[in-house]
Amino acid sequence: MIEVAYVTKDMRRDPYERITHLGGAGWQRSQPDVVQQIEQGQEDYYILLDGIPAKLTVALSRFGAKYLKTELEVEEPHILLSLPSQAA
């Protein structure tokens, strides 16, 4: 499993498309690449919430866009969006 420590955001987009990249210690990938890796079973990603891992899952917005969220979130990725932001 790969820990996500930060996200890169495009604040002009809606919450489902706002995250453009995810990253951690020594790596950064685009959201579409991470979605593809999860869907194909190549990698699992997670974030730490109070020291407890929360796995990322792929979801489909009401507009048909694939996006990432934690397994704890019902719809919008508020927890993921609360991670520190870093430039792409």
Results as ranks from 00 to 15, higher is better:
Ala54Phe: 05
Leu48Thr: 00
Val7Glu: 02
His21Gln: 08
Leu68Ser: 02
Leu81Val: 04
Thr20Lys: 10
Trp27Ile: 04
Leu22Pro: 08
Ala54His: 05
Lys69Leu: 08
Ser85Gly: 07
Leu48Pro: 00
Gly41Ile: 13
Pro53Ile: 05
Arg12Tyr: 12
Pro32His: 02
Met11Val: 06
Val74Lys: 13
Gln40Ser: 12
Gln28Ala: 15
Phe63Met: 11
Glu73Val: 14
Val34Glu: 03
Leu56Cys: 01
Asp14Leu: 12
Ser82Leu: 08
Gln36Tyr: 11
Lys66Tyr: 06
Arg18Ala: 14
Gln42Val: 03
Gly51Trp: 09
Ala54Gly: 01
Tyr16Ala: 04
Asp33Trp: 07
Leu48Val: 04
Ala25Cys: 14
Arg18His: 08
Ile47Phe: 01
Glu71Trp: 00
Val58Arg: 02
Ile19Leu: 13
Ile79Glu: 11
Asp44Lys: 00
Leu68Asn: 04
Ala5Trp: 11
Ser85Leu: 06
Ala59Pro: 05
Ala59His: 05
Tyr16Ile: 02
Ser85Ala: 08
Lys9Cys: 15
Gln31Ser: 00
His21Gly: 11
Val4Glu: 01
Ala87Leu: 04
Trp27Ser: 10
Leu49Lys: 13
Asp33Phe: 06
Leu56Gln: 01
Gly24Glu: 09
Ala88Arg: 12
Gly64Met: 05
Phe63Asp: 11
Asp10Asn: 13
Leu72Cys: 01
Glu75Ile: 01
Thr70His: 13
Asp10Thr: 13
Gly51Ala: 08
Ala25His: 12
Arg12Ser: 07
Lys69Arg: 06
Glu43Arg: 11
Pro84Thr: 12
Ala5Tyr: 07
Ile79Gly: 03
Asp10Ala: 13
Pro32Ser: 07
Met11Ala: 01
Ala54Asn: 14
Pro15Thr: 10
Tyr16Arg: 04
Ala5His: 06
Arg29Phe: 04
Val74Pro: 09
Ile19Arg: 15
Ser61Gln: 12
Leu56Val: 01
Tyr46Arg: 02
Tyr67Ser: 00
Ile2Tyr: 09
Glu71Tyr: 08
Pro53Ala: 04
Glu39Ile: 05
Leu68Glu: 00
Ile47Trp: 00
Val34Gln: 11
Glu75Ser: 00
Thr70Asp: 06
Gln40Glu: 10
Leu22Asp: 06
Leu80Thr: 04
Ala65Phe: 15
Gly26Asn: 06
Asp33Glu: 05
Arg29Asp: 04
Ile47Leu: 06
Tyr16Trp: 07
Leu56Gly: 01
Leu72Tyr: 01
Tyr45Ile: 00
Leu56Met: 00
Gly41Ser: 06
Thr20Met: 12
Gly51Val: 11
Glu39Phe: 08
Ala59Ser: 02
Leu49Tyr: 06
Asp50Gln: 14
Leu22Ala: 11
Ile2Thr: 10
Ile19Glu: 13
